[in-house]
């Protein structure tokens, strides 16, 4: 069974490569569908494979950058990426992340960093999950009552209030279909950036719901635009982690082979999913992440790993299901249509 193990030249160890491909694939599917990097899902998987932890984060980020490229291109063809909005938000994200990191350093100086960061993380995740589910509940009620707009029933519409702010420059984001002050996406991305920097995460998990609820993007465009940002920050992360000697380049390649296929499946699956389908599944992923963080806080590492990998597996199967069912339906319809045309 030697061929199942691959030599990692920098760490100098042999790793079970099908495991790497599988991790890449499942995170690719989930990332393409939700529009996030998903580093929190990769690390426990790498841990189980016996991957050196010193290289885990850097390798994660490099593979996420590559994977987001694949997803961004695909989303871009669907018209799901608002590049102008993405670039506008990069400004806020960058400054925000740096501010968040400064807060962490200050907490480190007063010696309270560990628990504070974890509990803020749990609080934020709980808030996001609560928001997603209550929004779904509201939209569901509206649909039953027959209150439906051009894209179907929508729950929270906080962004409508925020769009009324008219501090110049006003910008029209065509793909997202939004006309608002440039300061809205900048300040939203700044806030999510501060949180991301503070929590030491990429931020896709925070930015995706922020784009929907605060900026007012349709779910599909939020996913695509967020992936574009993940791609930019991922490439920069690859560079800095590379300089610090924390990337196992060969593992990036192996993981990306799985992730590229996964990213295509996850991205195309968004075509067959309704916005709220994506939002609810995202909420479930957030809950899984929250539980794993709580378990880690109490040092129940094994259970945390089981929760994360279980959630990753289940969500991945769910998304693949959507994709294959939708694709089969589309192909069947196409066939029927061409038969009709021929007749």
């Amino acid at each position: 069974m030697e061929w199942l193990y691959m030599y990692m030249p920098i760490a100098g160890i042999d790793i079970f490569w099908p495991g790497l491909v599988l991790i890449g694939f499942s995170v690719g599917v989930i990332g393409g569908f939700f529009g996030m990097g998903g580093a929190w899902m990769v690390t426990p998987g790498l841990n189980i494979l016996g991957f050196p932890m010193a290289f885990a984060i850097g390798t994660d980020i490099a593979h996420i950058a590559g994977k987001s490229m694949v997803s961004t291109f695909r989303h871009s063809k669907f018209g799901n990426v608002d590049y102008v909005l993405g670039l506008t938000m990069v400004v806020g994200t960058v400054v925000g992340i740096e501010c968040g990191a400064q807060i962490v350093m200050w907490l480190e100086a007063i010696g309270k960093v560990g628990p504070v960061v974890r509990w803020v993380y749990v609080g934020v995740l709980a808030l996001i999950a609560l928001m997603v589910f209550s929004d779904y509940y509201k939209a569901h009620k509206k649909k039953k009552a027959g209150v439906v707009d051009e894209h179907g029933a929508v729950g929270f519409t906080w962004y409508k209030t925020l769009h009324k702010i008219n501090i110049p420059p006003m910008m029209h984001f065509k793909v997202a279909g939004i006309y608002c002050s440039a300061w809205l996406p900048i300040s939203v991305s700044f806030l999510t950036g501060v949180l991301a920097g503070f929590l030491g995460i990429g931020g896709g998990l925070l930015r995706m719901p922020a784009l929907i609820y605060l900026v007012g993007c349709p779910t599909h465009v939020a996913v695509g635009t967020d992936l574009f940002e993940v791609m930019i920050s991922g490439l920069y992360g690859t560079f800095t982690y590379g300089v610090k000697g924390r990337i196992e380049v060969w593992a990036v390649f192996v993981m990306l082979c799985g992730a590229a296929i996964g990213a295509q499946i996850g991205t195309v699956a968004t075509k067959y999913a309704k916005g709220y389908g994506i939002r609810v599944a995202f909420g479930l992923a957030v809950v899984a992440c929250m539980i794993s963080v709580i378990l880690k806080q109490y040092k129940i590492d094994l259970a945390a790993t089981v929760v994360i990998l279980g959630a990753v597996g289940a969500i991945c199967v769910y998304i693949c299901g959507i994709m294959f069912k939708g694709a089969a339906n589309e192909l069947r319809e196409k066939k029927a249509n061409s038969k009709l045309a021929a007749a």
Binding site: G200, Y236, G245
Partner: peptide, 14 residues
Amino acid sequence: LVMAAGGKAEMLIV
């Protein structure tokens, strides 16, 4: 000014 996603990393001498 820009911090990589995922937190600052110490230089690793391998």
